[in-house]
C-alpha cells in the first residue's frame, strides 16, 4: 500500500491528512499554526507517518501559505488546486466551492471532471475571512459554540457597514455601547461576512446549481445559514471542511 500525505500549512492552522491508494482517509491531524513552520510541519508529518505505519515511506505534497517551507514534501501545490481536488473527491459533483479560511477566502468553480474552471480570492485585506469573525467574537466575548443559538434567536440583526475588520470592531463596540443586544450583533456579523463573500463570488455563482462550503468557518452552522440565505440556495458543507486542502494535496501524491 502506498501512503500519500497532504499537508496544508495555512495562516491560522496546519492540517495533515494521510490517504491510501484508493483515496480513503487513514488519519488526520490539526494544530494551530506555529511561527516555526518548518519544524512544526516536520513534526506533524513524522507523527502522522508513525500513526499510519508508513515506515517513513510516503509521497508528501504540501499546500497553503507555508508550503515552500515543508522540506519533506516532494511536490508543492497551491490551495486552489488542492481544495478543488479535495472537494470534488468527497462531493463528486461540479459546482462552486467557497473556502473561508483564516486569512483568505477562495471561490473556485469546478468543472464536471473536478478541474478548476475559474477562481477568485479576496483582494488586499482579510475582511471576508475567518479572521474577521475571530477578531470580533473575541471582542464580544462570544465563543464559537454559542454562535448557532445566538444567530437563531436574534431578531432583527444590526447592520455592520465597515469593510475593514479593524473598523468593524470599533463599529461593534459603539453598537454595544448604544445598547444593541449581542445576539443581534452576532447575526449582523454573519450577514456582513456573507455579503462580502457573495459579492466577491458573484460572477462565479451565476447559473451554478451546487454551492459547497469548506474551511474552518464551515463548522459554524450560523455561517452556513447566513450564506445560504444570501446565495439563495442551500449551501452544502463538505465533510471535514478544514481538511479539504490537505486531502486534495494527499490525492495529488
Amino acid at each position: 500500500m502506498t501512503i500519500r500525505i497532504g499537508i496544508d500549512v495555512g495562516s491560522t492552522t496546519t492540517k495533515a491528512v494521510a490517504v491510501d491508494d484508493s483515496g480513503r482517509v487513514l488519519a488526520r491531524s490539526i494544530e494551530p499554526g506555529d511561527p516555526r513552520i518548518a519544524q512544526q510541519a516536520q513534526r506533524m508529518l513524522e507523527a502522522l507517518l508513525e500513526r499510519v505505519g508508513g515506515g517513513g515511506e510516503a509521497s508528501i505534497v504540501a499546500t497553503g501559505y507555508g508550503r515552500k517551507l515543508v522540506a519533506m514534501a516532494g511536490k508543492k501545490r497551491t490551495e486552489i488546486s488542492c481544495h478543488a481536488l479535495g472537494a470534488f473527491h468527497v462531493m463528486n459533483r461540479p459546482g462552486v466551492l467557497i473556502d473561508v479560511g483564516g486569512q483568505d477566502t477562495k471561490v473556485i468553480r469546478l468543472n464536471s471532471d473536478g478541474s478548476v474552471a475559474d477562481f477568485v480570492m479576496n483582494d488586499k485585506c482579510a475582511a471576508g475571512t475567518g479572521r474577521f469573525l475571530e477578531v470580533i467574537l473575541a471582542r464580544l466575548g462570544v465563543s464559537w459554540d454559542e454562535l448557532a443559538d445566538r444567530y437563531a434567536s436574534a431578531d432583527p440583526p444590526v447592520q455592520i457597514s465597515s469593510t475593514c475588520t479593524v473598523f468593524a470592531e470599533s463599529e461593534v463596540i459603539s453598537m454595544l455601547a448604544n445598547g444593541q443586544p449581542v445576539d443581534s450583533v452576532v447575526k449582523g456579523l454573519h450577514i456582513a461576512l456573507s455579503d462580502r463573500i457573495v459579492s466577491m463570488a458573484g460572477r462565479l455563482l451565476m447559473g451554478v446549481e451546487t454551492v459547497l462550503l469548506s474551511g474552518g468557518v464551515a463548522s459554524n452552522s450560523a455561517m452556513v445559514a447566513a450564506l445560504s440565505s444570501k446565495v439563495g440556495k442551500p449551501v452544502a458543507v463538505v465533510p471535514e471542511p478544514q481538511f479539504v486542502g490537505a486531502l486534495g494535496a494527499a490525492l495529488l501524491g
Binding site: Y65, T78, I80, D104, N122, K124
Partner: peptide
Amino acid sequence: LDGDHIDMRVHSKEQAEGRLAAFMES
C-alpha cells in the same frame, strides 16, 4: 491580478504570487 504599477504598499506580494501560481496550475 491585483497590483499597482509603482506603489508597493498596494500590492500584496504573497497573495498575488499565490494567485498566479494557482492560475498556472490550472
